[in-house]
């Protein structure tokens, strides 16, 4: 399906991401005090040039908010979380914020989300392939921005990216968060090696 990972490696990564996202769902459920329905994570390696269109495809013609967090260690890269602007207030309410949020609180919500989802997903994958990994502080990409402006491929030193799409739904409302994991080209190889070592244990 892609030049970066074999079918077996992709299957393994999908299952490891699934386990990581299950842990993220549990964390969200404890914070939100609601049962969280998890979708099956969809994973793909895509050309970096396609990332703006990919994010647009996730959310459609709507403004989005996005945050990012870098990770380093056994493999390194960056995880982005994109939520549509219409879901942002719902997320804030679930995380205990009430009323009209100021800009600092809105940013806190987005940083909390990338910390939680990125940490669970990338951290979960790393843990299962026995890789040590650390995270930098999360930062905001933007609020109410055009989905085509979340990522500018010409500003990235990468050719490929790992896209992971996952939906969280709580009763009576649908909140969707999209994760994109950016891996520099040589890091796809590092991850592939770690996945091979994991596959050898099966």
């Amino acid at each position: 399906m892609n030049k970066g990972l074999s079918e077996d490696q992709t299957d393994a990564l999908q299952e490891l991401a699934n386990i990581g996202m299950g842990q993220a769902g549990d964390s969200l459920a404890r914070i939100w005090k609601e049962f969280v329905h998890l979708s099956i994570p969809k994973i793909a390696i895509v050309d970096a040039s396609r990332l703006p269109a990919l994010i647009h495809g996730f959310v459609g013609d709507t403004a989005v908010s996005a945050s990012r967090q870098a990770f380093h260690g056994g493999f390194r890269g960056e995880v982005l979380v994109v939520v549509s602007a219409k879901d942002r207030n719902g997320l804030a309410n679930l995380m205990g914020y009430e009323g009209q949020l100021d800009s600092v609180e809105r940013e806190e919500v987005l940083l909390d989300i990338v910390n939680l989802l990125g940490g669970a997903c990338v951290g979960g994958i790393a843990q299962q392939v026995n890789a040590e990994i650390g995270f930098s502080a999360p930062s905001l990409i933007g609020e109410d921005i055009d989905p085509l402006d979340v990522i500018h491929p010409d500003q990235l030193a990468i050719d490929k990216a790992l896209s992971l799409e996952v939906c969280f739904q709580v009763e009576n409302r649908s909140l969707t968060a999209h994760l994109v994991i950016l891996l520099p080209n040589n890091e796809v190889g590092a991850l592939a090696e770690l996945l091979d070592q994991f596959l050898c244990t099966l």
Partner: peptide, 24 residues
Amino acid sequence: SADVQPQARARVLAMGAIAFIPKP
């Protein structure tokens, strides 16, 4: 299952499963 929420466990036990084992 990877869905390790306590509600998921309670729900499947109420539906007849004898046990819930988290992944991995």
